[in-house]
Design a protein around this nucleic acid. Structure first.
Lengths: 354, 354
DNA sequence: CTGTTAGCGCGTTCAA
DNA sequence: TTGAACGCGCTAACAG
């Protein structure tokens, strides 16, 4: 039960000083209030000898803040991603001395309210609201009065708080550029396209990836050789789309809109004895675990979930410390922070003569 | 900032009673101390009208417990699994009114100490220690004095605390039985075997799965047709092992020791134009995400991470409440709780004539 | 330079 | 039946 924690009063008594003196010394403000070196020494020594650690609950009550963050995600399925965001957030928080409460709503609004209540009851200093779906949503009203960061959530209209999102548009550009730089000019799209409005999904990822791809291509005077709109981005759909494509042409370059589609593409290609990357180059998005397991490894642009989580924690703590230091000043306005999607270069792209 | 929380004192003042009265009423002990119905009514009404919620920090300071748990995992890679355990734990905790601090050590012992300190500073009522590796380890000493549950950690020798593990042995039995019940008698093992000591991995999963498989087979008077010891359970290794096997025989039934090996097996089989499940049946373990994506879907025995996490939280809260209610009594002894690994029946097994 | 005092918000005696 | 007073452990005024 660990009831045996020593209190500041015990340390003070043992060191023969008043509690306030001990408090001053241990909070590092000893020198600035010019406490005698002897006292300081004595307090420090007995504190470490007795294994003193301040009771954070008491400090929280006294100071009104707890060095604690709340993390709420609606993660339904794709849990690996949520896990990475959480870990990133925890890591970022820990680097600045914060702990984090984690909660999950499964998309249930009632549950979300309850979680927020439970967190506010425990006086968290701020909240990270994370989603796996990225599309717009309404925000609970209490959050207006609390430091908040949105993680992987695109809101409709302006938000008053920082938002962290993956740089999908830029990743689309990078994906297309990778293929073009390798000499490819006929690029087939699996998942969306070929036109800018050929998208059938609520996720903004599809739109932005497509827009990025098209922007680079048009800069080079290119348009997609073909495109397949797919609603469910899963291996069987990728398989079917590529199998259908193969009845018309033998592609040399594919952009799959995510790794699961790419997995299906691999299957279709392998059945046709088409070699990756010798016969066809493939790039994709997400860096799901299969991307590394496929043969050859899939070159893909990674969703930087961990980095995003970490960034969110950092932004939130900045906010918290801002209005801890200057409670009157308005907090800095909410900006959108785009986290780059780094390429994972594996073996699925080969340079060709143009 | 949310500084606008109403306090018990404010509610009492507004209702025209003393704080202690309000406290009594709101903690549900009004009737038992026979507070006038009028007062009760008034307190309740103003409390809800003002949106009163008790300050959990203050309650924690006063009562010495915080309805808060700590969850520490060493999760290095396989983060999906860790994520599921965490979610299970959070869910189990929430069902009983607890929140949970999550921490991650990356296997770093110093970090583990720091996290435990940070959690104890915040006066968590108990700790779940989770690992992704399942093999034995030393435990930090403080945990002796704190309610603790071990999650997916096998300790050497007896532990004084509850331990939650997947029922690997039983899953091994179930896997073999699945194939045998479908009429198979020649079963090839990919990952370990054929002998009981043919295991080359630190994880106890391999040992127990193998032991389970062998126990069922020997009950039926069978032994494995072959076995391949593999250190790294990844698709390329599975591919190689099955490719090698195919040079010797054409197998009718395979047990892969995890889904990634099975994925490699699929690749090798497909290259040889061997149909699953018509020509060969496959069962596996883990229920990784690829198991559902493979063609045909892979029948596999799922690691019940979410359930395990939930169970751990429940056991921990039992412990916490035990010594909250009877602080003198010794806590119940630590037992090992085996959580069944449920089968996910997909399309990779076909019945054959014996 | 150091000690005394007063709460932070709440639960719990103990009197009235 | 209710209210006043105390203390959980700590920090921040204010004296001394």
């Amino acid at each position: 039960m660990a009831r045996k924690r020593v209190t500041l009063a015990q340390v003070a008594a043992e060191a023969g000083v008043a509690v306030s003196t001990a408090s001053l010394v241990l909070s590092g403000r000893g020198p600035s209030v010019r406490i005698s070196a002897a006292s300081q020494q004595r307090v420090f020594e007995t504190a470490t000898r007795m294994g003193y650690r301040p009771n954070a609950v008491s400090v929280g009550l006294r100071k009104g803040h707890t060095s604690t963050l709340g993390f709420i995600s609606d993660s339904v399925a794709s849990s690996r991603l949520a896990g990475e965001m959480i870990k990133g957030a925890i890591e970022g928080a820990r680097d600045r001395g914060f702990m984090v409460f984690v909660g999950e709503t499964s998309g249930n609004t009632t549950l979300e309210r309850q979680l927020l209540d439970a967190m506010f009851d425990r006086r968290v200093d701020g909240v990270i609201l994370a989603s796996m779906l990225t599309h717009g949503r309404e925000l609970p009203a209490e959050l207006d009065r609390t430091p908040t960061v949105l993680l992987n959530i695109a809101v409709n209209g302006d938000a008053a708080m920082p938002i962290v999102l993956p740089a999908e548009f830029q990743a689309g550009r990078d994906a297309a550029a990778t293929l073009i730089d390798a000499g490819h000019r006929e690029i087939h799209l699996i998942g969306a396209g070929p036109g800018p409005d050929d998208v059938r999904t609520i996720s903004s990822a599809a739109n932005e990836r497509l827009a990025g791809i098209l922007s680079v291509m048009s800069e080079k005077g290119l348009t997609p050789a073909s495109g397949r709109v797919i609603t469910q981005w899963l291996p069987p759909e990728g398989y079917r789309a590529v199998a259908a494509l193969l009845k018309e042409v033998t592609p040399r370059a594919l952009i799959c809109f995510n790794d699961r589609l790419a997995m299906g593409a691999y299957q279709a290609l392998q059945e046709h004895r088409i070699k990756i990357p010798d016969d066809v180059s493939i790039v994709s998005f997400d860096d799901a675990s299969i991307a590394a397991w496929l043969h050859p490894g899939l070159t893909t642009f990674a969703l930087p979930h961990r980095t995003m989580g970490k960034r969110a924690a950092e932004l939130l703590i900045n906010l918290v410390e801002h209005d801890r230091n200057m409670p009157d000043t308005a907090p800095p306005p909410g900006e959108v922070h785009l986290v780059p999607m780094p390429v994972r270069t594996r073996g699925s792209v080969r340079r060709v003569a143009p």
